[in-house]
C-alpha cells in the first residue's frame, strides 16, 4: 500500500464485515513513533483464525480464503523496526478485535500516513449505519470525530448524504489545520 491510511481503510473494512457496530481508529503520533490501533466490537476470531489471518501460509484443516490485509499492515510496521499485535475474542459479551501496529517514523521503509481524512469519509460513505470513532493524537494535540454525535443531530438523515460527508471532511481538515 502506498499510504498507511489505505491499510487502515482495508483493516477497518474487515471490522465492519465482522459485524462491528462501533469501530475505533486511534492514531498516536510522537516525533519518532506512529501507532495505529483499530478496535472493533465485531464477532471476533478464535485462535486458529487469528493465526491464519496473520500468516497467510498457516494452514488449517478447513481451507478457507484468507486475504492479505493483516499481513500487509504487519509487514509495513515490522519493516520499520516497529511492532504488530492482534488480540481477538469471540466471547459472547466481550467479542471483538484489537489490532495494534507501531511504526518507526524515521526508518527508510516508513510509509507516510497519507490521506487519512479520505479514509474516514470513505468508511462513513460506505457504512452509514455503523459507528466510527476516530482520534489522532499528535504531540499533545488531537483531531477527533465520533459518528454517534453526528447521528444524534441528524436523526434519520443518512450519514452518507453528500452534504454530511462534505461536512465531515471539512470538519477534519479544519482540525488538522489547527494542530499543524
Amino acid at each position: 500500500m502506498k499510504e498507511l491510511s489505505l491499510n487502515i481503510l482495508d483493516i477497518t473494512e474487515n471490522s465492519v464485515k465482522a459485524g462491528a457496530t462501533l469501530t475505533e481508529i486511534l492514531i498516536d503520533e510522537t516525533d519518532n513513533l506512529l501507532t495505529i490501533k483499530i478496535k472493533d466490537n465485531g464477532c471476533g476470531m478464535n485462535e486458529e483464525t487469528v493465526k491464519s489471518v496473520v500468516d497467510p501460509f498457516y494452514t488449517t484443516r478447513t481451507t478457507r480464503k484468507v486475504g492479505l490485509g493483516v499481513p500487509l499492515i504487519k509487514l509495513a510496521a515490522e519493516q520499520t523496526g516497529g511492532k504488530f499485535s492482534i488480540e481477538s475474542s469471540v466471547d459472547e459479551i466481550n467479542h471483538g478485535t484489537l489490532i495494534t501496529a507501531e511504526f518507526v517514523k524515521g526508518h527508510i521503509d516508513f510509509t507516510p500516513l497519507g490521506d487519512i481524512v479520505s479514509t474516514i469519509t470513505t468508511l462513513i460513505q460506505g457504512h452509514p449505519d455503523t459507528d466510527f470513532k476516530f482520534v489522532h493524537n499528535k504531540n499533545g494535540a488531537a483531531v477527533s470525530l465520533m459518528t454517534t454525535e453526528i447521528r444524534d443531530v441528524l436523526g434519520d438523515v443518512p450519514l452518507n448524504t453528500y452534504d454530511v460527508i462534505k461536512w465531515i471532511e471539512d470538519y477534519l481538515f479544519e482540525q488538522y489545520n489547527e494542530i499543524h
Partner: peptide
C-alpha cells in the same frame, strides 16, 4: 470552525428532499 449547528441545517434542508438510502 465547523459546528454541529451546521449539521442541523443540513438536516432541515434534507427534510424537503426524498431521502435516498443506499441502493
Amino acid at each position: 470552525m465547523k459546528s454541529l449547528a451546521e449539521l442541523q441545517a443540513i438536516k432541515d434542508k434534507m427534510k424537503d428532499k426524498v431521502v435516498l438510502r443506499e441502493g
